[in-house]
Nucleic acid binder design. Structure first.
Length: 272
DNA sequence: AAGATTACCTGAAGGC
DNA sequence: TGCCTTCAGGTAATCT
């Protein structure tokens, strides 16, 4: 499940390996992952050079520039199981939907559950296409985040997952952030002090920084550009550990449903 | 209006 | 062994 740290690692790898390379071909095996028609997408991208790689929240944005200066952007959301591979000798299976040919360097897009989407945006309006998405969770200032979340009454976990408020946290890192901040996932921001909320955002950024450093979390099937799993899983304090002992206080970690998502927390460390 | 629920997908895991 | 059901989760759309 790629969240901000996983997407950041993919963005770094794409930037390092592909920036400055020309896209000479694009093979589409399952057009459903493209928001536009195969013909439109291929026509706008093939022949252009990959010049920019950005990440905003969980979005990956690839900027292509033609010899005449025209630009086209690919806005990518990997959702649950989207992956990019540059693996040498990688053998495509039935889950590979796209093959980008960067002048001889093949990059495959694979997505087991077909939830991911790649949307073509032309004429440099990439920022407008992100208008429904809040500020990046790693960059947002506390004052702005607090203005958006401080008086809300929904469970804090549901609001942390709401990408319109701030973008980047998914189910794994929300549970980790709330554990580190000592906040119950069903607590309501309107009932919490400003200092407590400040701690939640600080811990959220901290856990994502650490996860980026460790190559992300591999739980189901996230792997990086080269097919290697992330190393952050062994650092997880609560996610996936329901019924086991808290590493801090020995309470049994509880698993409940909050905002429709499986949620693990420590009743000792995260009292309501 | 904000919060809650459902659809979209496939593979893993559990029950019998 | 094998079939069936349930669960996992990010987001958009739909409902209350």
């Amino acid at each position: 499940m790629p969240e901000l740290p996983e997407v950041e690692n993919i963005a770094l790898a794409l930037k390092k390996n592909l920036t400055g390379r020309r896209l000479t071909g694009l093979q589409v095996d399952f057009a459903g992952v493209l928001a536009q028609s195969t013909r439109v997408t291929r026509g706008a991208l093939v022949g252009k050079v990959l010049t920019h790689v950005h990440r905003h929240g969980k979005y990956l944005i690839l900027g292509f520039t033609g010899d005449d200066g025209t630009q086209a952007f690919l806005m990518i959301h990997l959702r649950m199981t989207g992956q990019f591979f540059i693996l040498d000798g990688f053998i495509p299976d039935q889950h590979v939907h796209l093959a980008f040919d960067f002048d001889g360097l093949l990059v495959h897009y694979r997505d087991i559950r077909k939830f991911g989407r790649l949307e073509l945006v032309e004429d440099g309006i990439a920022p407008a296409a992100l208008s429904h998405v809040g500020p990046d969770m790693m960059k947002v200032r506390f004052s702005e985040w607090h203005r958006r979340i401080g008086s809300r009454r929904a469970p804090i976990k549901a609001l942390l997952l709401n990408q319109g408020i701030a973008s980047g946290l998914g189910n794994i890192y929300v549970d980790e952030s709330l554990f580190l901040a000592g906040v119950h996932p069903e607590a309501r921001p309107c009932d919490l002090s400003e200092e407590t909320l400040r701690e939640v955002l600080k811990r959220g950024k901290q856990v994502m920084r650490l996860a980026i450093k460790h190559g992300g979390t591999t739980f189901m099937n996230f792997t990086n550009f080269h097919g290697k799993p992330g190393n952050f899983r062994r650092k997880l304090r609560v996610y996936g550990r329901g019924g086991q002992a808290c590493r801090d206080c020995d309470s049994v970690l509880e698993k409940i449903v909050v905002g429709g998502r499986g949620t693990v927390f420590c009743p000792g460390c995260q009292a309501l």
